[in-house]
Simulated assay, not measured.
Amino acid sequence: MSEEIKVQLTATPGEKPDSQKLGFGKYFTDHMFVMDYHKDKGWHDPRIVPYAPIVMDPAAMVFHYGQAVFEGMKAYLTDSGKVLLFRPDQNMQRLNCSNDRLGIPEIDGDFVIHAIKTLIEIDKSWIPTEKGTSLYIRPFIIATEPCLGVRSSYTYQLIVILSPVGAYYSGGLEPVKINVESDYTRAVRGGIGFAKAAGNYAASIKAQENAKKDGFSQVLWLDAIEKKYIEEVGSMNIFFKIGGKVITPAINGSILKGVTRSSVIALLQEWGVPVEERKLSIDEIFEASQQGLLEEVFGTGTAAVISPVGELHWKEHTMKINEGKIGELSQKLYDTITGLQSGNLPDTRNWTITF
């Protein structure tokens, strides 16, 4: 796509939030990127406009049939004042994978990355500089055609909004407590679990709320059929270090193919740490815990990067991990990935884009 991006700047710039009190996803920058799709025109009219509410027809198909996908990315400001993106091509590939599953037309990933860079340049002053902060990037696509008929929409909007954020968890890198969900189901093979679709997250909210009432930060999902095999945490992929070997559930059609997940696997392989992608049961995890072999557990995702797990609760069992402290490998992975993302470590893998 070679269409020029039109730019309309806001006449009323917003006040920047306190960078030490950002939280996650609470504040939004002055502008957003918008692009439309029509089945007869394709993707067209790319533009950057002031951040504002979206006006939509009550019959817009996204409200009734759930055609909505999104991505999560981050931008960082380096010490030299450059902006850095971490593996954005992977996010675009995954967005198109989600599009395909939900019957949404493919986007030109290179053009959307160009649009994101243009948007960030305009709102660059919103990028926080405190340690652990970043500019969160949320591209999403919604079905906009007003029609009460169960089929793919003929029109869509792709929108990108930006949010200065702090740590995903208020406790920072402190190990979290996770409840293993035994009643509810998030996704099933053959469904949309591998897509970053809005409906996947709607399906997880009830269990997440119940877990929080009981003092847990997240829910660990088991497979939908046997309620036996580990899948993923609500907002993260999950890894287990057992007897010196790192194991993570294989991509099976109901697990999101995380960008941070694939980065962690690549780093572990480089470091000579044994790593396996395979089916992994909760019984195997519990047995390893009983034998003292469960050395570390950590989640991976764009929002939290690396999230060490200090405690797993499954039915009547409580599994303590590494005395509730962050493990050596989890810390090394966090330091390496955040070092690459901030530009403080050399990028020998061509994972980053600076501009």
Rank of each mutant, 00 (worst) to 15 (best):
S2R: 07
I5M: 02
Q8C: 01
A11F: 07
E15I: 15
K16G: 08
G23L: 05
K26F: 13
K26Q: 10
Y27M: 09
M32F: 01
M32N: 03
F33I: 07
Y37I: 11
H38R: 15
H38N: 14
K41G: 10
R47T: 07
Y51K: 08
I54Y: 02
V55D: 12
V55E: 09
M56V: 13
M56C: 09
A60E: 10
A60C: 12
F63P: 08
F63L: 14
F63M: 09
H64E: 10
H64Q: 01
G66Y: 12
Q67E: 06
A68V: 15
G72P: 04
G72L: 03
G72A: 03
A75V: 08
A75H: 07
Y76M: 05
Y76K: 06
L77V: 13
D79F: 06
V83T: 00
V83F: 04
L85K: 00
D89R: 14
D89K: 11
D89C: 02
M92Q: 04
M92G: 02
L95D: 03
N96Q: 15
N96L: 09
S98V: 01
R101C: 02
L102S: 03
P105Q: 09
V112W: 05
V112D: 02
H114F: 12
H114S: 12
I116N: 08
T118L: 00
T118A: 13
I122G: 02
W126C: 04
P128M: 09
P128Y: 01
E130W: 11
G132E: 14
G132K: 09
L135P: 06
A143L: 06
T144P: 07
E145P: 04
P146N: 12
C147S: 08
L148W: 14
R151E: 11
Q157P: 11
S163W: 04
Y168I: 03
G172P: 13
L173D: 05
V176S: 10
V176C: 05
I178H: 05
N179I: 12
N179W: 12
S182M: 15
R189K: 08
N200D: 05
N200G: 05
A203Y: 09
K206L: 14
Q208M: 04
Q208L: 07
A211H: 11
K212Q: 15
D214T: 10
Q218C: 03
V219G: 10
V219K: 10
D223F: 03
A224R: 00
I225K: 13
K227L: 04
E231R: 02
E232I: 09
V233F: 08
G234P: 01
S235W: 09
I238F: 10
F240W: 09
I242A: 07
G244C: 13
I247C: 00
I247F: 07
L256I: 12
L256T: 06
K257N: 11
G258Y: 06
V259A: 07
T260K: 03
R261L: 06
L267C: 01
Q269E: 07
E277W: 04
R278F: 06
K279W: 08
L280M: 14
E287G: 00
G292R: 01
G292H: 04
E295K: 14
F298W: 02
A303P: 09
E311K: 15
K320W: 10
K320M: 11
I321E: 00
K325L: 08
K325W: 00
S330L: 04
L333N: 00
Y334W: 09
Y334S: 11
T336E: 14
Q341H: 13
T348R: 13
T354Y: 15
F355L: 12
F355Q: 00
